[in-house]
Design a protein around this nucleic acid. Structure first.
Lengths: 340, 340
DNA sequence: TTGAAAGCGCTAACAG
DNA sequence: CTGTTAGCGCTTTCAA
C-alpha cells in the first residue's frame, strides 16, 4: 500500500457514500448497526487513521503547541520540554520545538512559521537578545491574533499573557541568607548581566540579603559575566584580588568553574570557601565537593505552562491572565561549610 | 483583528476573485501588473500569511518532521535535537518531538499520532523497551506507507532504512587500547545490559582489545547495570572485591559515579585508578579529575540524520538505503594516568 | 487578464 | 437510514 486509506476509498470500496462511512466510524446511531459494523471492520482491516491535517483544517485546530526556547542542550530547558511534553501528550497535543539560540531573529522566524495555523498556542521563554533589545513586536502579533500564549522563566512585563516563573529575588536572598546563617560574611557573587530578567532580580536579592543582615556591600565581590568566554579570567581575577569565604554563582556551570579555579589556586572548598549555585542540574551532583544548589523545577514549570496554555486553548470564555510562581528549594550538598 | 486574513477575505475586500488574489501574490505574469501591485500591497498591509494547514492538505506535505527519542533531559539526545533543528529550519522544516521515555507504548503512540499526515518523515532512536522486546511492528507500518525514516544511535537491523550510527566496537576498543598503551593491564568495565545495541558492541570491543593485547579476561571485572538504582551498590561491590588500575565506564554518569565511590573508599583517581568514559557530556568537564571521554558528536548525528531524511523526502526517485557512521574522538582530560 | 470549478480529506447540516 | 452538499484555505487547470 502506498498511503493511508481515506474515507473516500473506503466509501468507494464498500459502495456507499463518504458521509455514511464517516458517521459509521463515529458510531452515529442514525446509521444501521449492520452498516456500522461493516464499515468499522473494513476500516480496522485497512488500518484507517483519519488524516490529521484535514481535521485541523476543518476544525481550525491543530492540537499542536509551539515551544520556543533559547537552547535545548541545557538541563533546565530540557526539563521544561519534558514537563510540557508529558501534559501535552496526555491531553492529545503534540509539541513543535523552535530553538532561538538566544537570537531575536530566530525567535521571530519560529513564531512566524508556526503562527499561521500550525499551532494552537505558544509556550515561550525569551532569548537574551530579545530581552536585551526589548523588541517584542513578534509577540504582539500573537496576541493580536488571539493565539493563546504562555511565557516562562524569561518573561517580560511588556506583554500581557499567562506566565510561569520562579520568584528570583527570594532565590538569591535565601541562598545568601543560608550562607550568613552558616557563618559566612564575605560573600562573592558571580552572575550574568542584568538585562536578563532573572539576572537583575537575583542581583537585587543578593544585595537585600546582605543589607538586611547589616553586612557592608563590597562591589569588588560582584562579578558580572557578559559572555561565557570571559568566565575563567573574570573568576580568576575575583579570586586573586579579593578575600571571601563564600561564592554565590548564578548557575551551576559558573559554580563548577569556580570550584575548578579555586582548586588550581589551592583554595579548598568548602573548607576555605563555600559555594552555592542558584541553579541545579546534573553537574552539581558530581563535582568535588558536590554543590549545594537552588533547584528550579523545570519539569514542574513545563507542566504548569502546558496546563495553563491548554486550559486557555480549550476554554470558551476568555480567562483572566495569571502568573504562576513555581517554588524553588535549596538542595543541600557538600559545598557549604558551617563556620559557626 | 481576530485571525490571520485569508485569500477569500482579501478577494472580497478588493472585489476580485480568490484565484486572482492567489496568483497575484505568487506574482504570476498572467495577472496585470496593476492588479498584482494592488493585491500585494493589501496583503502586506494586512500581514497576510498563507495558512500552513491548508497548504499541507493541498500539497500532501507538511514540512514537518517527527523526532522520536527516548529522553530529552540528556546531553546526547538534546544535542541531536539541536543538530536536527538546525538543518531542518534551514530547509524550511519544523520539528515535532515525541519522547518515548524508554517505553514501547509511548513510542508507538507518538508514531501513530504523527504518521497520518502530520509529518513528512521520522527520525527515531529506539527506546530500551523496544529493543528489549524486539517489537518493531510500529516501524513496519511506517515503511509500509513509504514514510521516509532514519534511525540513529539506537537502531535495529530488523528494519531497513537510513541509519546514522557511531561505530560502537572501535569506541570501546580504542578506549581500552588507550589504557593499555598508557600502561594499564587490569581494566574493569562498567556497562549496561547487552540488549541495547550499543551495549553489546561496546562489550565486544572491550573483550577484543584485551584479547588482541593478550590480556586475560577476568569476568569479575565486568559489571552490568540493569537499572540506575543498582549502580552504586554494584560499583561498590566491584571496588571492594577486586583490584584494578583502570575503569572503562559506558557513559559519563557511570564514570562520575565511579569517581565518587572511589573517593569514598580513599582510592585516588587517576593516581590509583584511571577512568575513561565512553560518552561525553557536561559532567566530565567538572568532575575531579575531569574525565577523559569518547565524544559522540550528537550534534553532527542530528545534522546527518536530518540531511538524510530531507533528501529522501524531497527526492523523486527512491534512493538506496544508506548507513552513515559518524566518527568519535577520544577527548583526553585528567582521569587517565600514564603508568609507563 | 480574470474567474469558475475541482479537489486535498473530513464533518455535519440538511434533504431524501 | 443514507446521501448530497457546502465548506475549512489554498492551488491550478481550464474556460471565458
Amino acid at each position: 500500500m502506498k498511503h493511508p486509506i481515506t474515507l473516500k476509498e473506503i466509501a468507494k470500496e464498500l459502495g456507499i457514500s463518504i458521509s455514511t462511512v464517516s458517521k459509521s466510524l463515529k458510531n452515529y446511531s442514525e446509521i444501521s448497526q449492520e452498516t456500522r459494523d461493516k464499515v468499522q471492520a473494513f476500516a480496522k482491516l485497512y488500518n484507517y487513521q483519519p488524516n490529521n491535517i484535514a481535521l485541523s483544517l476543518k476544525n481550525r485546530k491543530s492540537f499542536a503547541i509551539g515551544v520556543i526556547i533559547p537552547e535545548v542542550v541545557h538541563h533546565f530547558f530540557a526539563s521544561v520540554i519534558k514537563g510540557i511534553e508529558t501534559v501535552a501528550i496526555s491531553k492529545g497535543y503534540t509539541i513543535i520545538i523552535g530553538v532561538s539560540n538566544e537570537h531575536l531573529d530566530k525567535e521571530k522566524a519560529s513564531i512566524k512559521t508556526l503562527s499561521s495555523g500550525t499551532v494552537d498556542g505558544f509556550i515561550i521563554s525569551l532569548s537574551e537578545e530579545t530581552l536585551h533589545n526589548q523588541d517584542y513586536s513578534h509577540l504582539n502579533v500573537i496576541s493580536n491574533y488571539n493565539i493563546p500564549m504562555v511565557m516562562f522563566d524569561r518573561v517580560t512585563e511588556q506583554i500581557e499573557c499567562d506566565k510561569v516563573i520562579i520568584d528570583d529575588k527570594p532565590v538569591s536572598f535565601n541562598a545568601v541568607q543560608h550562607l550568613i546563617n552558616t557563618g559566612h560574611s564575605k560573600i562573592a557573587f558571580v552572575t550574568t548581566e542584568d538585562y536578563l530578567s532573572v539576572g537583575k532580580l537575583r542581583t537585587d536579592g543578593y544585595y537585600e540579603a546582605l543589607q538586611s543582615n547589616n553586612i557592608t556591600i563590597d562591589e569588588h565581590l560582584v562579578t558580572k559575566i557578559h559572555d561565557q568566554s570571559e568566565l575563567e579570567t573574570k573568576v580568576k581575577k575575583l579570586i586573586t584580588m579579593n578575600t571571601f569565604d563564600a561564592i554565590v554563582a548564578v548557575n551551576e556551570t559558573y559554580a563548577a568553574t569556580c570550584i575548578k579555579i579555586l582548586e588550581k589556586h589551592n583554595i579548598k572548598s568548602p573548607d576555605d570557601v563555600s559555594i552555592i549555585s542558584l541553579s541545579n542540574g546534573l553537574i552539581s551532583l558530581y563535582t568535588s565537593p558536590s554543590i549545594s544548589a537552588v533547584n528550579q523545577n523545570g519539569y514542574l514549570m513545563g507542566q504548569k505552562s502546558a496546563e495553563l496554555l491548554i486550559n486557555r486553548i480549550e476554554s470558551k470564555e476568555s480567562l483572566p491572565v495569571t502568573t504562576e510562581i513555581v517554588p524553588t528549594e535549596l538542595i543541600l550538598r557538600d559545598s557549604v561549610k558551617n563556620r559557626n
